[in-house]
Nucleic acid binder design. Structure first.
Lengths: 343, 343
DNA sequence: TTGTAAGCGTTATCAA
DNA sequence: TTGATAACGCTTACAA
């Protein structure tokens, strides 16, 4: 029933009256074919609407001429934005990208990465791989051939010693946050966030270090919560119900902060003082004027560009193998820390 | 350098001491192999860590055992949520999905679909295809073999006469919106939105029809804008600066409405009356308590389920070829229409 | 510069 | 129930 079968190299060869290897040559190399034949082949290809099958190509050649992008979570705008920037940067270099979403399934409460996601991408034989965000596990990526560089953007994979990590410096990010809050006169600064994987643990540690450095060690108060608005809400609610209410709350990310914002607002309505609040990631929701959340911008575009550079250049990637590339974040100051009263 | 080459059917065959066709049989059919050999093959496969290469498989067999999901825009939560629901529903039926993001590039101001996205997906030979959202053009999809059903979720593709459209009824959605606003006493109800493709044009028409049916024909006032917050803001600003200010503004979608919300708030602060505002899609941002936007829920989950049903069952899809499946939307009422004053 | 033939990892056909 | 052998769409020695 395949009425509309795509034409193959063979069809083109027949049409042009040449061998199929010659057609292949025309499409894979700039030189080595006489102009005359080249024109004939191109004409035939155009006539039939032929485009090479990318996958048959990479099956045959052992490696495809494209980069694979695996996005950990499509609902996290931080990830999709970085993925998009990377794709754009790669496209400018004339490199095709293939973007797939990681399939994460929840078996009895534990998240696991469906290995088929990764293995099907590997079967496509990309020349390099970028993973945006943290994955629940990295088993499936152990099978990546040594010749294929793996770039982690944002996430951390200690289990992949050869991977290159491109992320922004959380220590610096938290330093910015704490410094900003301290300069506003805050003295009791709490933290809320999850402790579910490398990034969250690192970021909490970064907060603690920043507090120490700022001489605010004693005011540390941490409340663990999950990565949802609801989680942020309850954690903040809890903190605000303690006797020693914090005057500011630092959140692991924007989603959590947005949940916490409700608790902060309720506290204000109940006659409490305005509690300052910060997020992290500077996702576009944080910038909405209704939300107006002070947040740490990880410089997504810079991360994407650095990643694209490595993905495009295998030699460069080889050089950076196993390293961590840290970029400097920047603070986006908004109403959640600067306005004295609720709107 | 391919140190970690994945084992192939041949390796397994050698290890198990059988022919490679037998290994293939074991992995592709439940029956037809003696239990003894089957066990031997499975043991060898497990030992070597073999999993079949999905793409070599579909290259050889002419069609892969998976469904392709093409998401028009990763930044639109409406789309990613529907895609995720669909994937989940398909996974429950034991069907693999492959999800790819459409690459839309902007050449001198005109958006076009990078045909490579679609043709690469087609080269993978999915057994059916779902497109979530509207694409700038459908040329690349003309090549889909007649045997492969195409399901459009949310979007409309008049250029694909064989495609099945699953979407919610915009006429009903707008009827709900207008009825709701009318019941609140609104008499001047304006509309803002783009007119860039089928869905937006249809929705605007649905609004006009709903207004007519409600006997509010004379109060129709439409302002065109692009699909961004900024677009919504300026359109609303414009409407509110006219002499006959609307008392309510209906937006094409939530993003636009969120932009319009700022204009509405400013109007209020400037001493104006509270203008009611509605969105469309009921994206999760609309539900944030800071935003609290009345919106039309398209029943994403129902759309996803219907789509999954069609994607999974080729015969059923054949039956519905070229048809449009309309689901009933529902109104999510929130503060943006019910609260008399700003918070 | 061009063609022939083998092979990428798999399935499918057909004998054995 | 099994195993050769020829595809699938392509690349790539190797020969011509």
């Amino acid at each position: 029933m395949a009425l509309n079968k795509r034409p193959t190299i063979r069809d083109v060869a027949a049409e042009a009256g040449v061998s199929k290897s010659l057609v292949s040559l025309v499409f894979s190399s700039e030189t080595g074919v006489s102009q005359e034949r080249r024109d004939k082949v191109m004409a035939a290809a155009k006539k039939l609407g032929f485009t090479p099958n990318l996958w048959a190509r990479s099956l045959s050649s052992g490696s495809g001429d494209f980069v694979a992008l695996i996005v950990a979570d499509l609902h996290n705008p931080l990830f999709t934005e970085i993925a998009d920037f990377t794709r754009k940067a790669l496209l400018e270099r004339g490199i095709n990208t293939y973007m797939a979403a990681a399939v994460i399934s929840e078996r009895n409460g534990r998240k696991t990465l469906e290995p088929s996601t990764v293995s099907s991408v590997l079967d496509l034989r990309p020349k390099s791989i970028m993973i945006v965000g943290g994955l629940p596990d990295y088993k499936a990526l152990k099978n990546v051939p040594a010749s294929v560089p793996v770039i982690m953007a944002t996430g951390i994979a200690t289990q992949l010693p050869k991977a290159i990590t491109v992320r922004s410096d959380d220590n610096e990010g938290m330093r910015l946050v704490v410094k900003h809050l301290k300069s506003l006169g805050h003295n009791r600064i709490a933290y809320i966030g999850p402790r579910d994987e490398a990034v969250s643990i690192l970021r909490e540690a970064a907060y603690e270090r920043a507090m120490l450095d700022a001489g605010l060690a004693k005011s540390i108060r941490v409340e663990e919560c999950d990565r949802t608005e609801a989680g942020g809400y309850s954690a903040a609610k809890l903190l605000l119900s303690t006797k020693e209410k914090p005057t500011a709350i630092v959140s692991f990310n924007d989603i959590i902060a947005i949940g916490a914002q409700d608790a902060v607002d309720q506290n204000l309505e109940a006659g409490g003082k305005k509690v300052a609040l910060t997020g992290y990631d500077n996702v576009y929701i944080a910038a909405l004027s209704k939300v107006s959340l002070t947040s740490v911008e990880q410089e997504k575009e810079a991360i994407a560009h650095k990643a694209a550079e490595l993905l495009a250049d295998l030699d460069l990637a080889e050089e950076f193998k196993g390293q961590e590339i840290l970029l400097l974040p920047r603070l986006a100051v908004r109403d959640s820390t600067t306005t004295a009263s609720a709107k």
